[in-house]
Design a protein around this nucleic acid. Structure first.
Lengths: 198, 198, 198, 198
DNA sequence: TATGAATGAGATTTCATTCAT
DNA sequence: CATGAATGAAATCTCATTCAT
């Protein structure tokens, strides 16, 4: 029994994501540079050599992980825009992304990506590109939802402030040992309303 | 002419901080685990072996760097508390710490520390300890400056939100390519006022 | 043509024993701690890094060498027990083990193992375990060959004395420059007979 | 106040033996090559550099330790010879040296010396020299105590066998976990009598 | 006499990557 | 497609020895 040509790339695709899933787990636990190809291979359930069939080198795995993560980001961002009352939608669905930032696993990988971007130009470029795309999406939301016209600078600054809040919560997830999320939401919600309506 | 006993540890102290200065530079550029002892020794202008006279191992250097950084943090925090009108003082001196977060060097090391804390229990403990101390300082400020009594949860939540804002700006310094600081201050200042007065 | 699964561990097994053979030679010449991994790798004809595929660290190589040596010991011990007249068998085959103790190579590795056991708890444990097993074998011989019943203490003491004689000859192989083996046998044989029959 | 010239070498002598005492302790615990000059200096209560005033290098310390140990050996040997009935004296004072061999500290250093002699020609030479001197002393005893004339070979062989017994007990002190000394003496005494009278 | 700063060589160990099978 | 043997470079760390003070 021979695999048909159409099955081939499908199988390869599966193997690739098998590696990426393992890499996500490993990188969270040990960091990009604290995780060896051997550990990764073990976690992925395949041989070290075989990983090199799917990825040129370790760098490429890191980049794929970053790419994957950034794309998920973009997708969840663009979902908001479809709603008729954007601002209300943001406030209504606020809790979920806030909760996500507080998952240590999630936060750890995000911080790892940022740390890598601070030194690795390729990763920096990927992060910047997505940052610009997210900015454009959020800008559209702010224009759509605002009751008064906003200058380019106002849009940028509101975006940065809102983004900083979320990125910052991720950092807090690591810095603080435990956080009272309900209490946080109670003050966060009006603050975001304040920024949106300002 | 004999060296006084008090001069001896002074010299050792100097050598130690010479290593720490070099380490700060190296760690900013390459990260804790991307910087080798050889690089570090070269930057510090001494032999690799000699560094081990002053630090038990690389871990100990990382911990010293983290400790140093956290202590500076604490000092600059506690300065604010002395002012008669704390909230006004915060708003008046806001720009300086915001500007600091935007220095790539500064941000890179901070993120490196957070990333390390996510995996290294010893570093995590140091970060948590300082976090609690900073929290207490800020809590005192909030109590001192507020016009109404605040519940423990309210204090904690306000603290976390304010901290998240600053930590987040640091992340933005890496994610965004450039930021219009004046525009940012224009929206940040009223937001912080809002949080303080809420 | 596909390699059968049974061939795979065989190859690994061969490489492992290739390392152990080289280690035996090196350790004899330079001692456990006087022999570097580089020397060992050269002698084994493979790269230093590759040795770490088969052994976790140098310690593990030392332990494997000790284990191997102790097992050979046990085997040659248990062979004696099968004979109908044990004591006569011991006296008849005495010369071979005595000759063995006088080979400088052999003695050097034995002493190295004892020296290691004096400091390394893991090796001490291995040595003690085998010591107890040898004791049990010899005890069986003494009981089988004696014309009168022996107390536990008598058995132990005879065993220790006989063992000491052999271990001691090994030490003499290093302390003395050369020994007249025939002369030695002439006095050793009746002494051992004396101990056995006592 | 100036030290008189006659005090100088006395003080130096003290410092030297201070180092040797520390070295004895350290070498017992870690072996010649497992003990660093830094450990040694700490144990001796002086600086690393200062040890080099009294000993050319680490080798020289090892050699001094070996020399010291061998000399003690010689002294205690020659004491026996003075007695009118040598053999009886040997049997009467047997227990003390046997007990000494069973002290783990003592045995560990002796074995360390033998192990070193197996590889280090200088140490081998020292050990051989003393071995010959001890042989001569014991030969004199055997001649003095024997009721019949002994051939050179007989003397040598008896000496080697007796020596092997003692050296072997030292090895047993490490190989065996614990030994019943009274039981051992009960069989050892007649065995030695047997060898002496043979 | 005494210190401990300083070094350079070398030890053990790790690891990304290649390659024969 | 799949393995894991194999390597070489580099990383961390140790240590005997020297030297300025």
């Amino acid at each position: 029994m021979v695999t048909t040509p159409s099955q081939e790339p499908q199988r390869a695709q599966m193997r690739r994501s098998q590696v990426l899933q393992a890499a996500t787990r490993c990188f969270r636990l040990y960091g990009f540079h604290g995780c060896s190809m051997a550990q990764l291979a073990k976690e992925a359930g395949m041989s070290v050599g075989h990983i090199y069939h799917y990825f040129e080198n370790k760098e490429a795995i890191i980049e794929a992980i970053v790419q994957q993560d950034l794309e998920e980001w973009l997708i969840s961002m663009s979902r908001l825009l479809d709603s008729p009352d954007v601002f209300q939608e943001i406030l209504d669905t606020l809790e979920e992304p806030v909760r996500e930032t507080q998952q240590p696993d999630y936060a750890a990988l995000q911080i790892e990506i940022i740390a890598e971007a601070a030194r690795n130009p390729k990763v920096a470029h990927m992060v910047h590109t997505v940052h610009r795309q997210v900015r454009d999406t959020v800008a559209a939301m702010l224009i759509k939802g605002s009751r008064r016209p906003l200058s380019e600078t106002e849009i940028d600054s509101k975006f940065e402030l809102l983004s900083a809040l979320f990125d910052g919560l991720m950092v807090r997830a690591i810095r603080a040992e435990k956080m009272d999320l309900d209490g946080l939401m109670a003050i966060m919600r009006p603050t975001i309303r304040f920024i949106l309506d300002h």
